[in-house]
């Protein structure tokens, strides 16, 4: 049974550089289900029972999307609003998702340094992801650190390839290993792999 479900939300994949490259890595990953929301619901008419059955069949839920205006593209919110029903995902009797894991895989146009108190965006990325984190908590799910591809506007092809390989490794880890073995207090999922590499990318940006 595939363990990991990717809820993919990109309104214009045709012009994407990062995500179109990332999802090429999905080939040959046996335990991953890729679910392209904009492709499945071009009119935003989400099939709630189907989405819920998908959730029940997976243990790890990954929301993969670019960060637009400090949040996910609108279909992701539509999905959350419709699928995570009261009495099903949260509230009285809402225990269907208990014990599952949720995590964001996102790309951001600006570098991580602009997501600091002194930077252009004034707050760290994790703070913008609080709505997702608390959504997971409300649904009795464990929220994992996000995988972030920052500075995507300036990334060269090699760097994107590097992130793609991280993407593949992390997905594999999430499907194979029990998460308890890992550090869910890390700031980014990227840190699970090679903290040095990520820190380097963070400090210097791509060349």
């Amino acid at each position: 049974m595939p363990r990991l479900l990717i809820l993919f939300a990109h309104p214009l994949l045709e012009k994407s550089r990062v995500h179109s490259r990332l999802i090429k890595e999905l080939k040959g990953l046996p335990d991953v289900t890729f679910h392209d929301l904009y492709e499945a619901y071009p009119d935003f008419d989400i099939n709630v029972p189907f989405e819920q059955s998908l959730l029940l069949r997976h243990d790890v839920i990954v929301m993969q999307h670019p960060l637009y205006w400090y949040s996910a593209p609108p279909i992701m919110k539509q999905w959350i609003d419709l699928v995570l029903e009261h009495g099903w995902a949260y509230g009285k009797g809402g225990t269907q998702l208990t014990g599952k894991m949720l995590c964001n895989f996102l790309s951001a146009g600006s570098t991580l340094s602009s997501y600091t108190n002194e930077g252009q965006h004034a707050f760290p990325i994790r703070q913008f992801l609080l709505p997702f984190q608390q959504t997971a908590a409300l649904c009795h799910m464990q929220y994992l650190p996000p995988f972030v591809v920052p500075g995507s506007h300036q990334l060269g092809k090699e760097m994107i390839d590097e992130y793609a390989s991280q993407y593949r490794q992390l997905l594999q880890m999430l499907t194979e290993i029990t998460v308890a073995a890992h550090d869910s207090t890390a700031t980014f999922l990227n840190d699970w792999l090679t903290p040095s590499l990520h820190t380097q990318a963070l400090n210097n940006g791509p060349e």
């Binding site: 602009s114 600091t116 002194e118 930077g119 252009q120 506007h153």
Partner: peptide, 28 residues
């Protein structure tokens, strides 16, 4: 023009003294 990032990319690749200064001043 919806979700078009070309303009953003062009802007990001242009050296911007103020931004650069900020980024240098705030290494993480």
């Amino acid at each position: 023009k919806s979700w078009d990032e070309e303009g953003l990319i062009a802007e990001a690749l242009q050296p911007n003294p103020i931004n650069n200064g900020q980024e240098k001043a705030a290494p993480k």
